[in-house]
Each structure stands twice: as C-alpha cells, then as structure tokens.
Simulated scan of single mutants.
Amino acid sequence: MPTTVKGVIARAKGAPVEIVDVIVPDPGPGEAVVDVQSCGVCHTDYHYQQGGISDDFPFLLGHEAAGVVSAVGEGVTDVAVGDFVILNWRAVCGQCRACLRGKPWYCFNTHNAKQKMTLTDGTELSPALGIGAFIEKTLVAAGQCTKVDPSVRPEAAGLLGCGVMAGLGAAINTGNVGRGDSVAVIGLGGVGMAAVVGSRLAGAAKIIAVDKDPRKLELATSMGATDTIDATSADVVEAIQGLTDGHGADVVIDAVGIPATYKQAFYARDLAGTVVLVGVPTPEMTLELPLLDVFGRGGALKSSWYGDCLPSRDFPMLVDLYQQGRLDLDAFVSETIKLDQIEDAFAKMKTGDVLRSVVTL
C-alpha cells in the first residue's frame, strides 16, 4: 500500500520550503523504497528552490542521502530489503554507447524511478536529482541504491551521494592526480574541500587551496592543503605560479564554476597541465579565451560529471577508507538538523558558515 510521510518541498520559485504530507507509492519494476536516515543540504537543493535548475515545481528537495531499503519492486536483484545504501543520482543503464565502451561513469541514459511521489491532492512532485530525500521514505530506481557496510555513520556516508564524491572524483578520477603532483583547488565549499582531500589521498606533494574566506582556508589546511591563497588580497594566478617554482600547478580544479575562476585555473596550470571544471555554471555564462593560448599551452581541459564516479565501485571503496581512518567524512558534517531547519541551513550555507548541514530522520 502507498505510504504517507512527511517531506520538504519547494512549491514555487523563491518560496520558503514547506513540510507537507507526501504519498510514496509501492515500488514498481526496477524500483525501491528507502527509509531515509540522513540527507545533506547541498547548494543544488537551494538552486532548485530558486528556480535555477528548472521550473518543474513543486520540487521534493534533498538528494545527498543514505538509508535502509524497505521495499523493492519486481526484477530488483542488486539490493534487498534491509540493505544499508547510499543514494546516487546517476543510475547507469548498462546498454548505452558509453556503458558498452566500458565507461559507465559517462552513461548517456541514466534513469530514475518511473512512478511519481505526490501530494495528498494528487499533485506530482519532481524529486531533486531524481531522488528527493528530505523525506522519511523516498522512491528511487533500484540502480540509484548502492549497498555499503551498514556500520558506517549515515550522516557521513550520505555525503558521498553528491558533494564529497564530486570533489574527490574531480581530483582522483577526472584530474588523475598522482603521487608527487602539484594541485590547486579554487573554491572551498563542500566540493572544493573534498577535492583537497582527494588530492591528499592521491599522494599530491603540494596542494594549494584558494578562497576568499579565511575560515575555509584554515579548514583546508587541517584537511590536507599544504598552502593557501586568500583570493581577496592576491593575484591567484601569480600566487599559484609562485608556489610552484614559477611553472603553475599540474592540476587546477575549479570548484566555483564561473568564467573568472575558470580563467584563473586555465592560466595557473603548468604547460601541458590539466584544468578540471567541477563547479556548475549557470546557463547564461560564457567564456572567451585566446584560441592560440588553448593550443599553445597544451594539456587537458576537462569537465567532471559527479566526479566521474561509478557508485558501485567508488562508494564502497570510500566507505572502507573512512572506516580505516584514512578519509575523514565526519569533518564535512558541520551540524545535524531536522526537517524544519532547512531554511536556516540554506542561510548558513550561503554565508559560508557550514560545509554541510545534515538532516537526520
């Protein structure tokens, strides 16, 4: 039978979020219902509320989540009732040209649950990133559930579902950071801070953290940065070059995603170095670079989609590193909150007071 639970929606552009009754249907073929235990408050949820993603209101917010599978539909074999899972927003199809070429992290046909969760009056909800996890139970495609060790702390594990994975993957998967490399990370929100941590895990010798907020620069040092640059008082390109013997960094990660920071990343890398764009631009942004500079500097200009992760491969590995004490996911959890505190969490996120507020249910 369908279940009625409490969830958080954005009903209209810019309107305050609301806690409402949501009807969650029984899972159909290939679907699963998950009892949500934790869900991080991500910038993407705020962008949904502000109409920056689409105008398909009302949105069921939340996507950076972990929980326990409580029901599965016909044909589901990869997860079972009782499994502790991290939710992901790129359930790969296994059949598209990317999957068949052995690169499923580029899957061109990722999918979500076919059924819709609704309000009690029948209004269909658009789940954020196909998940919608500011809710007691959510309906997802079974492929969006990645089983991991159930002993992991849910508040920490759920963050792998989006921001932390995006940053770690930008360094490790997309940037191919290796032992002895120099790395610069521009922008120290949750994604940028995770890129710092990922660079440290990969063995980078020099990790340069760039931001305008001294609190974030201090935190980045505690999380593995070897050097910091205050972007309010220094020329970022010159400062990065000065810290790398005048050459520039081997890999520069733009975790902001605006033309100005991308240009900084482009010119702050070494010849034949790599630029990774993981910050998400808005539709109206454009970029102009001299084509001769693009040609003459060589190297690679890459975009990182979800950290180019494969959840079934990466989530269990990262949980294992967390349990070994080699990946401090707890450091990303600034506070735990309840469903009725999400507006406050948005405010703290905008002022840089938190890396992640995490809703616990």
Rank of each mutant, 00 (worst) to 15 (best):
I208G: 09
E18M: 12
E288P: 03
C309W: 03
A66F: 08
T3Y: 15
C99Y: 13
Y106V: 09
V69Q: 07
F134E: 04
I19P: 03
S334Y: 04
A166V: 04
I253C: 03
D245P: 02
V276A: 01
T110A: 09
D55S: 02
I131A: 13
P29W: 05
A98H: 14
V237W: 06
F59G: 08
L219P: 06
G62K: 00
C162H: 11
V276W: 01
G102I: 12
P154L: 11
G187Y: 00
A166M: 05
Y322R: 11
G51N: 10
V8D: 01
L271W: 15
V76W: 11
V69T: 08
D308W: 10
G82L: 03
A157P: 11
A231K: 00
V33Y: 02
A141P: 12
M223L: 14
L310K: 07
G94H: 14
P2H: 15
I186C: 01
H111T: 12
Q37A: 10
P150G: 03
D121A: 10
E136L: 10
A209V: 15
G307H: 13
Q241A: 10
G257P: 06
V359C: 00
V33M: 00
Q324P: 05
F57G: 07
V294D: 05
D314C: 07
P214Q: 09
I207F: 07
V17C: 10
I208Y: 10
V197S: 00
P127C: 05
K147H: 09
Y322W: 14
G242H: 03
A205D: 11
S222A: 13
I86P: 02
S151H: 06
V333G: 02
P29D: 00
E31M: 05
T118W: 11
V22P: 07
K338R: 15
L289A: 04
G161H: 05
L168H: 08
P2D: 15
N112D: 11
T360S: 05
V252W: 06
G298A: 08
G203L: 12
R326Q: 13
V76Q: 06
E124A: 14
G198R: 03
T110Q: 05
A171I: 10
A220C: 08
D308E: 15
K116I: 01
V8F: 06
V72D: 02
I9Y: 12
H47C: 07
C309P: 00
V24C: 09
V20T: 09
A156P: 07
V36S: 04
D250Y: 01
E343Q: 10
G163A: 14
I342M: 09
D181I: 06
V278Y: 05
V140W: 07
G130Q: 08
A265T: 01
V319I: 15
M223T: 01
R11H: 12
F315N: 09
T221D: 02
G198F: 06
I229W: 13
D149A: 02
R200G: 14
D245I: 00
I240F: 02
S182N: 04
A272R: 13
R179Q: 07
D227L: 12
T221A: 14
